[in-house]
Simulated scan of single mutants.
Amino acid sequence: MDHTAVAERFIAERFPRATIAVIAGSTARGDRTATSDIDLLLIGEGLFDGSAQSEASTHAFGGEIFEVFAYTPEGFREWAERGIQGHRPVIVHMLVDGIAIREDDRLDELRAHWSAVLAEGPRLSTAEALHRRYVITDVLDDYRDATDALELRVLSSVLFERTAELMLLTAGRWIGAGKWLPRRLRALSADRAEALSGPFIAGDHAAFAERVEDELRRAGGRVQAGHVR
């Protein structure tokens, strides 16, 4: 299937006032699977009726599922800045890394600006870094004390996610959700990713706790008494 052609038809029918349209995700990268949808970023001054500035919606069209992220220029700037502040700029990556199939004279300027922002990496404040280390310290102690199988499974998942995020952020790397967290972690360091994920996957609780402790020390160590949040 020509996914660009079906996307163009979808935009013409459902979002005809979009002046920028970018295909992102697995369709843009060329690594679609049987269940892949088409991620589509749309920007346009007159994209919505009324005062709306953004919409995230899912559509069925032409035998495909479209995940649409649609914004006015002001709405895109607002949500892009939120993503930057949260260290997970999904729509910024869509804009910069995706394939443009509809563009106006602002696209190059937008891509240049947000590419520079991405290149700077996330800014982790001292207060946030301390709080992230505090959370990991607290959950790690609970994990080491846990005996219930379900509690262990839940706590290990929380620890993996929080530790991976800390590893990325202290290295000046953007974080990700779902499948993107391990992908970004492996891009940071395949060896450190394997050291953390190996015992996590194997259910080796003692070894996993030690790997978390190692990464906590690398980031500055445990945080408990005296922490104000």
Rank of each mutant, 00 (worst) to 15 (best):
M1T: 14
D2I: 07
H3F: 15
A5S: 14
V6L: 02
E8Q: 15
E13S: 13
P16Q: 04
P16Y: 04
R17Y: 05
R17L: 12
T19P: 08
I20H: 06
V22M: 09
V22Q: 04
V22T: 09
I23E: 09
A24F: 06
G25P: 07
G25I: 14
T27C: 13
R29A: 15
R32S: 15
T33Q: 14
S36A: 13
S36E: 07
L40G: 13
L42W: 13
I43H: 08
I43Y: 05
G46C: 10
L47N: 08
F48P: 14
F48H: 12
S54R: 15
A56Y: 13
A56K: 13
T58L: 13
H59R: 08
H59V: 09
F61Q: 03
F61Y: 15
G62M: 08
F66Q: 07
E67T: 02
V68S: 08
V68N: 07
F69N: 09
A70E: 12
A70K: 08
T72C: 12
E74L: 13
E74A: 15
R77I: 04
E78S: 03
W79S: 05
A80Y: 10
G83I: 04
I84A: 03
Q85C: 03
H87G: 01
H87K: 10
R88H: 12
R88V: 01
P89W: 12
V90K: 07
V92G: 10
L95Q: 10
G98M: 11
G98S: 09
I99H: 06
R102K: 15
E103K: 15
R106W: 12
D108Q: 14
L110Q: 08
H113S: 05
W114I: 02
S115E: 09
V117C: 05
V117E: 13
A119Q: 14
A119C: 03
E120C: 08
E120W: 05
E120P: 00
P122K: 00
R123P: 00
S125P: 06
L130M: 12
R132G: 02
V135S: 04
I136S: 04
T137N: 05
T137L: 05
T137K: 08
L140V: 00
D145L: 11
A146S: 14
A146W: 06
A146M: 07
D148L: 04
D148E: 13
D148H: 12
A149V: 02
E151N: 05
V158A: 11
E161M: 05
R162F: 00
A164R: 01
E165L: 00
M167N: 00
L168K: 02
A171R: 11
W174H: 02
G176F: 00
W180P: 00
R186V: 03
A187W: 05
S189I: 04
D191A: 15
R192I: 09
A195T: 01
L196W: 09
G198L: 14
G198A: 15
P199S: 14
F200A: 01
A202W: 06
G203L: 11
H205C: 03
F208K: 03
V212K: 12
E213N: 11
D214F: 12
E215V: 01
R217F: 03
G221E: 11
G221K: 06
V223P: 01
V223E: 07
Q224M: 10
Q224G: 04
A225Q: 08
A225G: 02
V228K: 08
